Simulated scan of single mutants.
Amino acid sequence: MSKNNANKFSPEVRERAVRLVQEHRADYPSLWLAVESIAPKIGCSSQTLLTWVKRQEIDSGKREGLTTSERDELKRLQRENKELRRANDILRTASAFFAQAELDRKFKL
């Protein structure tokens, strides 16, 4: 799901759309056909609605995968890890700089 679609539709609209798919799923031979039928009524693409349905199924435990909260935590930890790696690189470079400066100073005495 792109960020534009996440912001374009309110959580209430997304929940209603997913609920409609779940309620009418038995009326269609496949999930995709149910989604294709309901998506135009909501005003979103079929792929977007399918993503919402799958996300809800994962969050409710009906489908395998990382829940929304687990995904958010993973993203947060990845950002933190990236920031820590950057900080370590800066500290390593600074340490090497100051070590070299100390060596240069000792030889000049």
Rank of each mutant, 00 (worst) to 15 (best):
T51C: 12
A101V: 13
K75R: 15
S69E: 14
A6R: 12
L109R: 15
A96L: 02
C44E: 00
V13R: 13
Y28A: 06
N81I: 02
E36P: 09
I42E: 04
A87C: 06
Q47K: 11
G61R: 02
S95H: 11
E12R: 05
D89R: 10
R76A: 00
L84N: 14
P40D: 09
F9E: 03
V18G: 04
P29M: 01
T51W: 06
P40Q: 11
E80C: 01
D104I: 07
H24M: 13
S10G: 08
K41R: 07
W32C: 04
E15P: 05
F97S: 06
A39K: 02
N81L: 14
N7T: 09
C44L: 06
R86P: 03
L77A: 11
F97C: 05
L91Y: 11
E23M: 08
E70H: 10
R14T: 01
S95R: 10
F9R: 05
K41D: 01
A34V: 02
R86H: 02
S60M: 06
S45Y: 08
P40H: 11
R55Q: 14
F107S: 05
Q47G: 14
N81S: 15
S60C: 08
A26C: 05
V13S: 09
G61F: 01
Q47L: 05
D59Q: 01
R63A: 08
S37W: 14
R55P: 03
S60D: 10
E36I: 06
R76T: 00
D104V: 03
R14Q: 10
N81E: 13
N4I: 09
E80G: 00
S69Q: 04
F107D: 09
E36Y: 13
N5G: 08
I38L: 08
D27K: 11
R71T: 07
D59R: 01
L31A: 09
D59A: 01
E102T: 11
L31H: 02
L20W: 11
S95N: 14
L50S: 05
T67K: 14
E83F: 00
E64C: 01
K54D: 08
R86G: 08
A17D: 01
E83Y: 03
K41H: 10
S10D: 03
S10F: 03
K108S: 13
K8N: 10
T48P: 02
N4W: 03
L103E: 12
E83K: 13
K3R: 12
N4F: 04
E70A: 11
K75L: 15
A6M: 10
I90Y: 01
N5R: 05
Q100H: 15
